[in-house]
Design a binder for these strands. Sequence first.
DNA 1: GGGGGCCGGGG
DNA 2: GTGTACGGCCCCC
Length: 621
Amino acid sequence: METKKFVLLDIDYVTENDQAVIRLFGKLTGENGGKHIIAMDRDFKPYIYVLPYDVGECIDDLNQLEVRKIEKVQKKDLGQMKEFLKVTLKHPQNVPKLREKIWDLESVEEVREHDIPFYRRYLIDKGIFPMAEVEVEGKCTYKNSNTIYSKRNAHSPAGTTASPKRNTPPPKKTNPSLTENEVCIFEMEGPPKPLESGFPELKILSFDIEACNPKGMPQENVDPIIMISFSSNQGFSKVFSTKSSSFDFVEVLKDEEELLKKFVETVKSEDPDLITGYNSDVFDLSYIRDRAAKLGVSLDLGVDGSQLKFMRRGFANAAVIKGRVHVDLYPAMRRYLQLDRYTLERVYLELMGEKKKDIPGDEIHACWDEGGEKLEMLFEYSLDDAVAVTKIGEKMLPLTMELTRIVGQPFFDVARMATGQLVEWYLIRKAFEDNEIVPNKPSSSQHSKRRGKSIVGGYVKDPVKGLHENIVSFDFRSLYPSIIISKNVSPDTLVEECDEDKCYIAPEVGHKFLKEPVGFVPSVIGNVLRERVRVKTLMKESKDPRERQILNVQQEALKRLANSMYGVYGFSRFRWYSIECADAITAWGRDFIKNTMKKAEDFGFKPVYADTDGFYAVYIG
DNA sequence: GGGGGCCGGGG
DNA sequence: GTGTACGGCCCCC
């Protein structure tokens, strides 16, 4: 038996002998530091909770179905203790198959926590966090990365002869390149242990491809890839192309097939933790997939030698490279910044304060054809794009990393989550820690019912026109989070009736919230804000500039999380949705700002503009 | 005013 | 894969 410590980069599960096996992808720290590890846990089983009408009858009914285990458990449902049945199933894929059947049983009132993906359940239940260190015990076998992958697709049951998907082009003879990496395949014995750890140093590799078509956007069935650029945060920068250049950073390859092979080889030899691109989910990697399929080049980019694949994620697909984290910075920047446009050029200007080389899309074809000076410009532009992506990544990924370490879901997911989802997954983890059962997502009918209701927002006083002198401003610090905490606004403290001294009553709307006990959401926000104060104090005390910078990112992440928590009450598709809570919060907000303005007036200030959590006033004496 | 449809960004 | 999810703007009743 041996012990390994590693930074947890990603997680998934595969099926072996009809059993789900969790795989933790990481990078070893300490001894053998830098090498990849794939730790396999065969002991974790999928489960759901069932709220029975009649316990005995329900157990009998469940025993008729293909279940592994049934246990009675006490869990809080919005603060109220109830007896649930924890039903362990045989395979994660049985959950969607069986949950309807179970729900339809006469003895069953409700099925809960039936839509939490298996790997997320694992992270939550084991208390481990991606982008932090984990310790495992068991046995390690070193293998070459391209010998691991055995025709088995993640998530498809072993043995089933799955028809080859568009996802995975038929791998032709792989080039036994010199850049294969040794990977520690680790059989876990016992659960993983979370370790207190600092901010991991990650290697980021960015890339960008060029292709061209005289008529407009290049078409993957016609137009070849003409160059691929790379840039890392550790000094690597290179352009590969099928045309030569006088620049040192350009390396010429004989044809597109060789170019694509070089792409794969470079990813393997550079061996980054993070791969970033700009619109790479939708454009670069999709284009590479299609061209590679056409030319029969194997895209075995995963650390386990698995193929590049695409996952459906809402309206766009996300490109997955197992064991490395591929992040498309384009959708990430859309959430991170508030801009009119999100072109790479615009985002770069915003973050770096300087212009980037640019060639309009419709001129690329001419540059490529003409050659000479124009072509050299194209090489420079292409490299500059990859460099820009690295720089943007260095600026914004630390925040994503902190959010990952707080929310506790994979970096890949966190980088693609809207803030509402971040909050939801954070609350789901906290619910597990507090023995609270997670509310179900609204059904489509509940959802449309919710959408029909609207919430009155913050108080806005239209600005008084004119040029004002002697302006003073006032604003509440984190108004909504403060209201949630001070008025204990939570779905589990909301009551129909109560004694006046035992609850807080919202102005205008009249919703009542018990003063005690502390509600689930207020307690979570309270912890987030206290943690933020703690981090800010550490930051002020710290003498080390790098440490200060890291702590600053941490407190920013906590602030983002606290400020977006109010939203869970008002967004119709969220699990902790509560129109009463949302209404009460904004009602208190309006009340506070109006009262403060009135008081200011008593002291001779005349408000000229107000919005939600602050106002401006002039002193008139 | 609010529900439905389209688009972004990449070359 | 126990997830099928965006948000802003325009247009149209």
